[in-house]
Design a binder for these strands. Sequence first.
DNA 1: CTGTATCCCCTTTGATACTG
DNA 2: CAGTATCAAAGGGGATACAG
Lengths: 123, 123
Amino acid sequence: MANQPTGENCKELQAALDIISGKWKPIILFHLMENETLRFSELQRAIPEITKKMLTSQLRELEYNNIIDRKVYQQVPPKVEYSMSDYGHGLKPLLVSMRTWGFNHLEHLENLYGEDNEKVMEN
Amino acid sequence: MANQPTGENCKELQAALDIISGKWKPIILFHLMENETLRFSELQRAIPEITKKMLTSQLRELEYNNIIDRKVYQQVPPKVEYSMSDYGHGLKPLLVSMRTWGFNHLEHLENLYGEDNEKVMEN
DNA sequence: CTGTATCCCCTTTGATACTG
DNA sequence: CAGTATCAAAGGGGATACAG
């Protein structure tokens, strides 16, 4: 997220990529798009392999970018709910377009390199 | 590009992201979208900060994914031309959508956090 | 001119323990 | 429950030298 030279032309594209790229952001976004609101622990259960640290940091980035809302209930034990923000819903069409293109691309790669080929591409 | 858990749901989205994310791929793609064909050295001049190693590896990935074509002229000194493939042109609308969203998002961030704020976000 | 081959660094991600 | 703190590992990216 720091050093992107990208010659003045595509800093906008990079801005978009910063939101949705990363190992966990896509799946977090999909869960929040499908679920209205989710608690921290519900997200953890939905994405079992993620650590609290990563879940926290990715949620914080999305919140900073106003894609999601974070609602804290002042109670013990704590309860925090995450949901897409109004603004964040504007990201949905883009995500859907990307998923569609990606779906077709995976098919395209199969046609090129065969059925059960995992992307090997060593070096 | 390796370990993406992404729970079966958004491997398609990840597939799309794999193509266009990375420090150099967006700018490489934009240059190739604007120029029909470019030689290796022309790309280097267009993106002065990139090293040969990175330029080579990113071009190879794009070629592997059939986004760009690589044409080698068997001559001395060597001459290699890169261009978007027919298939690769199908990526253009998506890239444009992302740039548009990113443009608006940068504006959105300005409204939220002020004019000359670089994204600070420590921690 | 168009690359490869090494070696090094830095950022991102992960494991684990601790806290209000 | 919802995090933070600390330390370690991994992978992407960079500097430089060499090669066909």
